[in-house]
Simulated assay, not measured.
Amino acid sequence: MTTHAAKAGVEVAPVTGYTGAEITGVDLAGPLDDEAVAVIRAALLRWKVVFFRDQRIDHAAHVALARRFGEPVVLRSRGKASPGDFPEVETTADRLELAGRYGMDHQEWLERRRHTLSRGWHCDHGARVDPPAATILRAETVPPYGGDTTWSNLAAAYAGLSAPVREFADRLRAEHRLGVGYQPRPGRDAYVQHLQDHQVATVHPVVRVHPETGERLLFVNGYYVEQILEVSRAESRLLLELFVEQVTRPEYTVRFRWEPGSVAFWDNRATIHLAPGDTGHLDSPRIMHRVMLAGDVPVGPDGRPSEPICGAPLVS
């Protein structure tokens, strides 16, 4: 079903009941007129993540596309596969980036980071005081099978809570920290040293208010959240189990099958996502390019903004 057909020929077709829409009738390699930008922005806000197929865009076009929707983030450090002449673009090439990282193969590193099955769910740079507003990810090379990414809708997850639990969650705040739950290696651990040298932590509201739609979002995930504050650790553990289970319920998710030339554009304020974990054993590269848009400091229903504990903002 198509929910919108613009005069410019841009069409938006929802993918699931709550999350995700596929957009056709647009060439992201060329300049977008204001009408097309408005249609895409409205679909993004409504469906939280939008998908485009068969796009042939290079780094310059990728950055130009991002600029139509916000200010691209320039990271202080990027992976070694990222292009030197486009500082806004971060490239992830699994076999180039992850083999031997911190003295471990990729599988051991994942095992030590993921202390629960929900550990991989995250929003981009969620431990920063100013997480990105959105992310635009494009696929260059993908395996012939596997490698899907999954997103979940935090507005739908919040709305799906019972009224008393929503009211309780509105008052809570939680510490988000890089490296939560990591199990160190015996002896000297290069990743522990990395965390000590580059630690980032922020107190965010458990429920943040979307700055554009006004929706309330259940702003938790299994990757960064350290503890809910002002409750005991035992209570925090049970509350986080409740909230993380809520935000990862299958009915709030959408799963996307990548192809070369696919582009996913998601609202990083209103979603969490799960990167694939089924390609490490495949003898095929997975090369993706990411541009993020600068975001604001989250604010809770009580009007209180997030508070940094350590680490610089993403955008200085």
Rank of each mutant, 00 (worst) to 15 (best):
Q107S: 13
Y224N: 02
D94A: 14
H281Y: 03
T213L: 09
L274N: 15
F168L: 14
E22L: 06
D105C: 06
D34S: 10
R290F: 07
Q193K: 02
G160D: 11
A312I: 00
S284N: 12
R56Y: 03
H198C: 09
R113E: 08
P87N: 07
A43S: 08
P298M: 08
T91H: 03
H194P: 09
V49T: 10
A60Q: 10
G181C: 11
A294K: 08
V49S: 01
P72H: 05
V165Y: 04
K7C: 00
G9I: 00
F256H: 12
D124Y: 14
L218P: 12
E71F: 00
Y223G: 00
H204M: 04
Q55I: 03
A8C: 14
T150K: 04
L314V: 04
S284W: 13
P143S: 09
P205A: 07
T116H: 04
A99L: 04
Y18I: 10
G20L: 01
I136V: 13
R101A: 15
A190G: 05
R78V: 02
L96Q: 13
V315P: 03
G30P: 00
G30C: 06
V315N: 12
D58W: 08
E140G: 08
V10W: 05
A159N: 08
W258H: 07
W109Y: 13
G17N: 09
E212Y: 06
H194F: 11
G103K: 01
G70D: 04
T279R: 03
W109R: 08
R177Y: 06
A169E: 10
A127Y: 15
G179Q: 11
W109Q: 10
R53P: 09
W47S: 02
V180H: 07
I272W: 05
T279G: 00
G261I: 00
D302F: 03
A13E: 14
M292E: 14
E175P: 10
L217N: 08
W109P: 01
E241R: 08
C123K: 12
R188M: 02
H125P: 00
V244D: 10
H176P: 01
C123L: 15
L98T: 11
Q55R: 02
S236E: 07
D302T: 13
T2Q: 11
M104S: 02
G17D: 15
T141L: 03
I57D: 15
Y102A: 12
V15N: 03
V247M: 12
A133S: 14
R269D: 01
T271I: 06
G100D: 12
L75T: 06
H122L: 05
V225P: 01
R101I: 15
Y223L: 08
